[in-house]
Amino acid sequence: MKSYLSVSCAVAATVVSVGLMTAGASAAEYPFKPIELIVPYAAGGGTDLVARAFADAAKKHLPQSIGVVNKTGGAGAVGLSEIMAARPDGYKIGVGTVEITMLPHMGVARFSVDDFTPIARLNAEPSAITVNADAPWKTVEEFLAHAKANPGKIRIGNSGTGAIWHLAAEALQDKAGVKFNHIPYDGANPAVTALLGNHIEAVTVSPAEVVNHVSAGKLRILAVMADKRATNFPDVPTLKEKNIDLAVYTWRGIVVPKKTPQNVVDTLRLAAKNTADEQAFRDSLAKMNLTHAYADGPEFRAVMEKDNAFFKDLMTKLGMAK
């Protein structure tokens, strides 16, 4: 009985104090309660791991903790819609991925790139042309020459139609004036498996997704679709060096809904910058073979807008846009 009384006292006290806190919310510094970080992909995947590493490292730079919530489905559309529709108070933020600039053009999303305010980009991975180590092509020129001579014969595996690595292969086909046979798989991993089994000729997934097999001597990266060479693979040329002006990246960063107040955005930007600089965060990314690619809000916005225009153009050309 006595314990029951003390429990109810404690409950009453908590209710009152929570009430007071909410009353003082407008005056109090952001953030005064834990922040929810929406991840539009499943737990355990690359995006999820980046988000969790970020949430973990952000503890030192924010007075409140960040909790990761996975909202999966619709190739990311479900989670991204949820971020867009969240109350713009900074307590529900999200991990934005390159799909923000792709899904709207396919007519499967209720948001567009303008519905988000970018906070910071944390990671970016280029597309890479990878072939089996037994394949006859040693350089990207040989590969493209063969593709040109045999239109539609080279089978390129991707992580799903309309997904980033499919569009990378389409863009390459467009720029290099060749014709591939695109084979969609249920994610990057099955595509790499098919390449290992010699069922397809190449994949266009990121270097991080093939690094194990490359170091084991089973696969060979011919080129990366990046602005500069990857630090893990200094010997692999970029397409730009080969006079093909193409760079396709997938990226992951923190975004908030459009109408989020400026002071909240500024607080988050500062915290994200300090977190991204944190050695623990860099180490976590490095362990996952992911590239640390911090970009502040405005710079991140420029990337988003550039990609948005690029994919809109490409998807219209491919007849995928709606």
Partner: peptide, 24 residues
Amino acid sequence: LGIPGDAVTAVMLGALTLQGLQPG
């Protein structure tokens, strides 16, 4: 081989990589 045989091992692949062990 570094090829996950099912959904669980696909997640485990991430765990191994995080521990600095490259399956293969």
